[in-house]
Amino acid sequence: MSLRHGLLGLLAEGPASGYDLAGRFTEVLGSIWPAQHPKIYAELNKLAAEGLVEVESEGPRRRKAYRITDAGVAEVKRWLTEVDVDHTMRLQPLLRSLFFWMMETDELQRHLEAEASYYRELAEQYRDYAARKDRGEFGYSEQTQSMRVTIEAGVRLYSALADWAEWAQTVPPAKQSKQHGEGTGRSGT
């Protein structure tokens, strides 16, 4: 997902300031798709220059509230229906796992335990958020229903990563195999 389409989609729900949009990103996608304030403001300026959003109001300290234009709505719909999905996942924990063989066994065990705990916590936070959505705390609008689908993806993704980190503790290199445990120079066996 591009930041521009994320901002346009959030603005399709209603007018918001850059600050409000950053909060929305953090609320639902913070650990999956972080959006920094300077990038949000820069992108909003580009979107305004392209006529995809416009300033609805300007408040104290020049705080601007933006709203999506018809052209912006058309762009989000085009992106959703015509643009190929980028399935690239840049997960640093998986990149690091390629090099686990370079860690000492006890360090790797501690790392994987921390990873499993971290992912279980995130999955639980998303489960709690999902339960609040299911109880109707945020209403039953189409936006809320779509957000519930996104939250479920977070639950399942983080649960799967926690399962992976727990599994990785039970196999080499985190747990030395009998035939390769001797003479490898690795400690903690």
Rank of each mutant, 00 (worst) to 15 (best):
T81W: 08
Q125D: 10
S17Y: 03
R4K: 15
Y129T: 04
E43I: 07
V73F: 07
V83M: 05
F99M: 10
E50P: 10
T150G: 01
A165Q: 11
E107G: 11
E13A: 13
L29G: 00
R67V: 08
V76Q: 00
Q145E: 11
M102S: 14
V155A: 01
T69G: 09
K46N: 15
L157N: 07
A49Y: 09
D84W: 07
D106Y: 10
L29N: 01
G154E: 04
E82D: 12
R127Q: 11
V83C: 04
H87T: 15
T88S: 15
T170S: 06
R148W: 03
S97E: 14
A65H: 12
P15V: 04
P93W: 09
M103G: 03
T69V: 06
S117W: 11
L7G: 05
K175D: 12
Y140E: 13
R67A: 11
F138G: 05
A12L: 07
S159E: 15
A65T: 10
T150S: 03
L108G: 01
R62Q: 05
P93T: 10
E82G: 05
G51K: 06
I151Q: 01
D128Q: 05
S159C: 09
F99V: 11
M103P: 01
S97D: 13
R78I: 10
T150R: 01
Q179Y: 12
Y158K: 05
A174Y: 04
V85D: 12
G183N: 05
G154R: 01
T105S: 03
Y118F: 14
K178W: 14
A168H: 06
A65K: 12
H111D: 14
E182I: 12
G139W: 05
A162L: 07
E56L: 06
P173L: 01
